[in-house]
Amino acid sequence: MPAVHYRWQQDGAAGREEIHASFSADAPRWQGKSHMEQAGAVLAYKIETDAAGVFSHAVLTLAEPARRTMTIERHADGEWLIDGESRPEFSAGTDIDVMDSDFTAVITVDAHGFVLDYPGVLRLD
């Protein structure tokens, strides 16, 4: 199972993000941490997709300043569950955004689809 590891620094802020991804025939898996140092927050996440790269499962843990965990699932039929509760209002969605950002830019990605340069947000360390 091939694997890659990346580390990014935030542009203009004291923060970083790390991710480890492993790829197999059945489904890619991502595990990472975002350190938002200005806010004093650390977000750890594990994300899984199906073999086609469509989001299926995530566990997000806000480790600091107060520990909280959220589980998000998307079934093949389009049903979304958040912490085990059905959320039909998300049925049209296919992916999640752990950054919660509406920022847009032209980005550079590698062969795995990982961002190498996200102007004004992140840069590969």
Rank of each mutant, 00 (worst) to 15 (best):
P2G: 02
A3F: 14
A3N: 08
R7H: 13
R7I: 00
R16D: 01
R16P: 01
H20A: 06
F23I: 00
A25S: 11
A25L: 08
A25T: 12
D26H: 09
P28W: 15
R29G: 05
G32E: 04
G32Y: 13
S34K: 02
H35W: 15
E37L: 10
E37T: 03
A39V: 08
A44K: 10
K46D: 10
K46T: 03
I47E: 08
I47C: 03
E48P: 01
T49F: 15
D50E: 10
A51N: 11
A51W: 02
A52F: 13
A52H: 14
V54H: 15
F55K: 05
S56W: 09
S56H: 07
H57L: 12
H57Q: 14
T61I: 07
A63T: 06
A63Q: 14
E64I: 01
P65C: 12
A66C: 14
T69I: 06
I72K: 04
E73D: 14
H75Q: 13
A76G: 11
E79P: 01
E79Q: 10
W80K: 04
D83L: 12
G84K: 02
G84N: 04
E85T: 08
P88S: 00
E89N: 06
E89Q: 08
S91F: 15
S91H: 15
G93T: 03
T94S: 13
D97F: 04
D97C: 13
D97K: 03
S101F: 00
D102L: 12
A105L: 06
V106W: 00
V106H: 02
V106A: 14
V109Q: 11
H112S: 14
H112G: 13
G113R: 04
G113E: 02
G113Q: 05
F114N: 15
V115N: 13
Y118W: 02
P119T: 15
V121D: 04
V121R: 07
R123L: 01
